[in-house]
Design a protein around this nucleic acid. Structure first.
Lengths: 197, 197
DNA sequence: CCTGTTTTTGGCAGTCATTGACATCTGACA
DNA sequence: TGTCAGATGTCAATGACTGCCAAAAACAGG
């Protein structure tokens, strides 16, 4: 509740943000591989060692809040009314979340381009998606009380996670114009067509 | 056509196989991170430098034929009769492929365990799946002549790739007993249930 | 079998990511 | 102001890669 945390905490937060900003700028300018952690640290006014105190690895700086966002997403799904169809819950959760995070389109676009340009980052990104998928799967299982061996929750999660991923990719490909929420809705709708005929 | 290629080629192939075998054994024994490239090279009777002539990175040795397999998969899909429903084609292609590759269950299991134990390898694995997904998407697009902006082929690919991934994971979790092809069929079937209600 | 040519290897040095150990500095607080 | 815990900087070491050059092996022709 206290917006004025200790000086220490504020400094820590600022350093963290500077590291993320410095890294993003440098990556955007020269490409991920051509930037060293030392350079990122230098631009953020800290030592290289300190970078690793904030982020476990160079690439982690591109997913600064993945843990929090995942937790938030999971909580948002759980909070949806139980009568909703699972896919509907996920879709709404994603839309709610998109609003809550206040998505800075420009920043998201920059980041997406950096990631797309380097295979190892794309891989890491897929790993993030798979974690969201896991959250969906767990939520669906809990809600439907499905057996752990039932593949239905897994596939629901595959569809939900895939819709998010595909929508985001398309949104980025379009230069972050257009409405992401709408695109997600479209992706979910497309599954119907994909399944039937 | 010539089973007796040049000595050079045969040696190269043997070295490659030895590297893969050495790496797999060591990873299984001690875990991916605890094994150095130098140790792998040593057990394969070559220098560390040579390892990197065969594989661009340490982790690549766990996906020795990913390119070929992907190409084979793509070709197999394309070869399915055009009247088949896309998902059906993909399912059959996967089943055909599983047979053609002669899946060594034990080896697959060992590999899967190594991968599952290390996040960066899981990420790389997801990247591989996304490439298969891309192949499916392209095939569906070509076959249906869908517009590039149509999300249907993307989602068909998501479902197909997801079914493969989920099935394989389950198969591995079950200790590679059971029929993988059958499990894939089950995953595809589960989508119906997941979508409707 | 001998010899000049083409590949494949090995050895080395250098860069960069990542980590542990230890000294120093700084905000928090009595 | 003096002390303590937490944050940072420094240093050294390991291990993944890469470029470069020289030795070894496989080829091809005579």
């Amino acid at each position: 509740m206290d917006a004025t945390e200790s000086l220490r905490d504020r400094k820590k937060l600022r350093t963290r943000e500077q590291l993320v900003a410095a890294a993003t700028e440098l990556f955007a300018e020269r490409g991920y591989d051509a930037v060293t952690v030392g350079e990122i640290a230098e631009r953020a006014w800290v030592s290289e060692r300190t970078f690793f105190r904030y982020f476990g690895a160079k690439e982690d700086v591109l997913w600064p809040d993945s843990g929090e966002q995942l937790a938030l997403f999971a909580a948002t799904i759980e909070a949806r009314p139980a009568v909703e169809h699972p896919l509907e819950s996920v879709r709404n959760a994603m839309i709610e979340l998109g609003r809550a995070l206040g998505m800075d389109a420009t920043a998201a676009l920059t980041r997406a381009r950096i990631v797309a340009a380097t295979p190892s980052l794309v891989a890491r990104d897929m790993l993030e998606y798979s974690r969201w998928e896991g959250a969906v799967r767990d939520a669906v299982r809990r809600r439907t009380g499905a057996d752990e061996r039932d593949l239905a929750p897994e596939m629901t999660a595959v569809v939900a996670g895939g819709a998010l991923r595909v929508s985001f990719e398309r949104w980025v490909a379009d230069g972050a114009r257009g409405d992401l929420a709408e695109m997600i809705g479209g992706a979910f709708a497309a599954v119907e067509g994909a399944i039937r005929d």
